[in-house]
Simulated assay, not measured.
Amino acid sequence: MTETVTEASSGHPIEWPAPTSQRAWPSISVVMPVLNESRHLAESVGEILAQHYLGELELIIALGPSRDDTDRVARELAASDSRVKLVRNPTGKTPAGLNVGVLAASHEIVARVDGHGILLPGYLERAVCLLESTGAANVGGLMLAVGVTGFEQAVAQAYRSPVGLGGGSFHVGGVEGPADSVYLGVFRREVLQRLGGFNEHYQRAQDWELNHRIRQAGELVWFSPDLAVTYRPRSSWVELARQFYATGRWRREVIRQYPDTICARYLAPPLVVCAILLGAAAGLAAATVGVPALLWGWLAPVAYGLGVLGASVLQSRDLGWRARAWFPAVLATIHLSWGAGFLFGRRPGGRGR
């Protein structure tokens, strides 16, 4: 027996299973790879264990070689709750930790959660309902970026903005339905095993790459805005620049392996970096060789700077003054670090670009 519920965020009826007292819920293994996550780990684990899910639940934490107190915090959490299991991930790489966790999982549904992700109430129950009602191999939703400091709030707003990370539904929201990729994900374990799990070559973008293989295998990836996970953004400018330099580098690797996935959104940051570098070089050459026409080269960096300032005014209106002050620098850092990583980052496992 099912009941029809209309979800406000999706605007159309969804067939949810009968009330919890009238059904048996499948067991879930939550897999969490962690590295240097002592700041957020206890909160993240606490929210997972506090999910009001009536089926059996286990949490497998794959411990990388952290340099902070992550291992101590994890041991204390495991000692306080028998549902928490610890496994080792010697490489510390995210896809390796995910695969180690999946191998240790006892159940047929596997949910991925990161060490700084916070599940909203009802997340696991809704995910299971969607797996059953859609027949999808993976369901997921929004990366709900939330910052504390002014800088973090600016980063979170850039994540959610079309002028920041672009128009992906798991960043900016969208209508429920089939998707190319989703944030994190709740999987059928059988599909993970059949496709060989996460590709450990991809230190970044391994979720996108796996979802691409899932769709190539004829399976369904399903997005729902009702499935949201709170994400804690980077807390310093240096960390943000490093993150997006690596993101651009790995996006180029994805396009190299899957050239049919290339699109304007992925090419925009490297094209901006090229325009700025060429324009600045032309402008400097004008002063050196005395060719006035080359002064037009400054148009590219100036136009980009004005564009960032204009977009910042529009996109940061709801932020506090500290976050508004940071927003132009955050936006430019995301664009230019991503583009520089795409253009100049060393090819993973290789000696050249």
Score class of each variant (00 low, 15 high):
1 M>R: 14
6 T>H: 10
11 G>S: 08
12 H>N: 08
12 H>Y: 07
14 I>R: 11
15 E>D: 13
17 P>I: 13
20 T>W: 10
21 S>K: 12
21 S>D: 11
21 S>W: 13
22 Q>V: 12
22 Q>R: 13
24 A>H: 00
24 A>F: 10
32 M>E: 01
32 M>Y: 01
32 M>K: 01
33 P>E: 08
34 V>R: 04
43 E>Y: 13
46 G>K: 14
48 I>N: 06
52 H>D: 13
54 L>V: 13
54 L>Q: 15
56 E>T: 12
60 I>G: 03
68 D>F: 10
68 D>K: 10
71 D>W: 15
71 D>P: 05
75 R>N: 14
83 R>C: 09
84 V>L: 04
84 V>T: 07
90 P>R: 10
92 G>S: 05
92 G>Y: 09
96 A>T: 05
96 A>G: 05
98 L>A: 02
101 G>D: 03
109 I>C: 09
109 I>L: 10
114 D>G: 08
117 G>N: 13
118 I>V: 14
120 L>R: 06
120 L>Q: 15
121 P>M: 15
121 P>F: 13
123 Y>P: 01
125 E>H: 11
129 C>R: 07
130 L>I: 08
133 S>R: 08
136 A>N: 03
138 N>S: 12
140 G>K: 05
140 G>N: 05
140 G>F: 05
140 G>Y: 04
142 L>V: 06
142 L>D: 02
143 M>W: 03
151 F>D: 00
151 F>C: 02
152 E>H: 00
155 V>N: 06
160 R>T: 06
161 S>W: 03
165 L>T: 01
165 L>D: 02
165 L>N: 00
169 S>C: 14
170 F>S: 04
172 V>N: 02
175 V>F: 15
178 P>E: 13
179 A>Q: 03
182 V>S: 04
184 L>I: 06
189 R>T: 00
195 L>T: 02
196 G>V: 03
196 G>I: 05
197 G>Q: 03
202 Y>I: 06
205 A>Q: 05
215 R>N: 09
216 Q>M: 11
216 Q>T: 00
219 E>N: 10
221 V>P: 05
221 V>W: 06
222 W>A: 01
231 Y>L: 05
231 Y>V: 09
233 P>R: 05
234 R>V: 06
236 S>F: 00
244 F>W: 04
248 G>P: 03
254 V>D: 03
263 C>G: 07
265 R>I: 00
265 R>M: 12
267 L>I: 09
271 L>M: 10
272 V>N: 01
273 V>S: 01
274 C>L: 15
275 A>K: 08
278 L>Y: 05
278 L>R: 03
279 G>A: 13
281 A>T: 08
285 A>L: 15
287 A>Y: 08
288 T>L: 11
292 P>M: 11
302 V>Q: 10
302 V>S: 07
306 L>E: 11
307 G>T: 12
307 G>C: 02
309 L>Y: 04
310 G>W: 09
311 A>W: 08
316 S>E: 04
318 D>Q: 15
321 W>G: 14
323 A>F: 03
324 R>H: 14
325 A>M: 15
327 F>W: 07
329 A>C: 14
335 H>V: 11
335 H>T: 14
336 L>A: 02
337 S>M: 07
338 W>G: 07
341 G>R: 01
343 L>F: 07
344 F>I: 02
351 R>P: 00
353 R>N: 11
